Amino acid sequence: MEAVLRKWCVVFLVLLSVLPYEAIAQKAPCYFIFGDSLVDNGNNNQLSSLAKANYMPYGIDYPRGPTGRFSNGRTTVDVIAQQLGFPNEIPPYATARGRSILYGVNYASAAAGIREETGRQLGARISFSGQVRNYQNTVSQITSMLGSRRAADESS
């Protein structure tokens, strides 16, 4: 089952990379990201954790250098955001402020897992349930920002 899911994820990513920019630019009003170190873009930077990537050589090929991404440059979610036509990168929850959250937020945390104890040996991390709580907080902020839940629902 896992192998089939991975194959479909690869097919999805390949399709996103070959579709014309204009064909999908307005298809997604916002982009919320949950996960682990594969898509963490800086949420662990301020945590007391061994699972950090905000130092060299991480980010050596990234325009701003190390950001907390566990790669030398952009991650798959950065590429997908660009392909979907977002004007900027999706910010990490740790630094997302103001109207930028209307485009989406990255909740991913290195060493996180679905189970609460996953990654505990590495120190602090935001588990999947913690990421969901952060998402609920963001939804509340968006609702307050737009005035009502209905306005938030209609804006997407």
Score class of each variant (00 low, 15 high):
Ile80His: 08
Leu5Val: 12
Arg149Gly: 12
Ile114Met: 06
Gln83Met: 12
Glu116Thr: 11
Gly147Met: 06
Gln136Asp: 08
Arg149Leu: 13
Leu122Arg: 06
Asn43Val: 02
Val11Leu: 08
Ala111Arg: 00
Ser155Ala: 15
Phe32Pro: 02
Leu102Ile: 10
Arg69Asp: 08
Ala81Ser: 07
Lys27Gln: 12
Pro29Asn: 13
Lys7His: 04
Ala25Gln: 14
Asn44Glu: 12
Ser127Tyr: 03
Leu50Tyr: 05
Ser140Cys: 07
Leu19Met: 13
Cys30Ser: 12
Ala3Asn: 06
Ala108Gln: 08
Met145Ile: 10
Phe32Thr: 03
Arg115Trp: 09
Ala25Met: 09
Gly98Thr: 06
Leu15Phe: 13
Phe32Asp: 15
Ala25Lys: 15
Gly98Met: 04
Met1Pro: 05
Ala151Asn: 03
Pro92His: 01
Asn43Met: 04
Asn41His: 04
Leu47Pro: 09
Arg74Leu: 15
Leu38Gly: 14
Tyr31Gly: 02
Gly85Tyr: 02
Ala111Thr: 07
Pro20Leu: 07
Ser140Gly: 14
Arg99Tyr: 08
Pro87His: 07
Gly35Pro: 11
Arg69Pro: 08
Ala96Tyr: 02
Asn45Leu: 00
Arg149Met: 00
Ser100Val: 09
Ile80Cys: 04
Leu13Trp: 09
Ala152Met: 15
Val14Met: 09
Ala110Ser: 14
Gln26Glu: 14
Pro29His: 13
Ile101Ser: 02
Gln136Lys: 09
Val77Cys: 11
Val39Lys: 13
Ala25Asn: 11
Ala152Tyr: 03
Thr67His: 00
Leu122Ser: 01
Glu89Trp: 08
Leu50Cys: 05
Val10Ser: 09
Cys9Ile: 10
Ser49Lys: 00
Arg149Val: 11
Ser144Thr: 04
Ala94Pro: 00
Tyr107Val: 03
Arg99Lys: 15
